[in-house]
Amino acid sequence: MLTLENVTAGYGGGDVLQGVDLTCAPGTVTCIVGPNGAGKSTVLKVISGLLRCRTGSVSLGETRLDGLDPSRVLALGITQVPQSQALFPGMTVRENVQLGGYLIRRDRKLLAARYAAVCERIPLVASRAGDHAGNLSGGQRRMVEIARCLMLEPKLLLLDEPSLGLDPQSLAGVAGLIRSLNEGGTTMLLVEQNVRLGLGLATHGVVMEGGRVRLTGTAAAVRDNPEMAALYLGGTSAKETQRG
């Protein structure tokens, strides 16, 4: 269970997060939605150790994560796909994915087995293994970014805006991958601007605004909450919109 309690964090002088409480139960997909500047991506950065929280605590089970370096957080089984430009463009797809196993680099057999498993799950990795990552399309890059995270077989996968800049076909591929990973037992925490897509993929939803959590619940409950509809879906709930 991932737990954030009363977390404040920010860049420079101000606090972007102003007392965030959040939980993710094992096996769930939790999606954080909210307007620009709500602090969604900052939550992921605090969890992955890229940003230290100023007050409050972040825990995975009994283990405190706040104050740990990104490599220590990774070693605990939490990997992150950042919002954009997360690959090493001058390196091949194979190198990019294998770098996801940097922490297990000394165990060559394990590394080879994990790479083979990732290639099986995401065939693009094998078919474009020798190509430079900088030559891939947006959707392909996203798949490789996720593939890289799978090298550590994470307990918790953090995905920042997985739909950003993707065409419908690529989007369907990424969404299918997220569903299949969750069916395999991977816990996921998504940040998504595309509310319908995000809550459609998720089991649980979190609505943030102004650095605070405004609503939480099951994805369906959040999606159909009248307040949510008024805030983000132009006055009608997603369900009603879909019916219409």
């Binding site: 890229l50 490599s71 950042p82 430009q85 997360a86 090493f88 770098l99």
Partner: peptide
């Protein structure tokens, strides 16, 4: 590889555990 990765994308390098 750690040197090349850091040279090409420092924040992504940190996310895969490169010090």
């Amino acid at each position: 590889r750690a040197i090349r990765a850091t040279s090409q994308n420092p924040s992504a390098a940190a996310l895969v555990g490169i010090g």
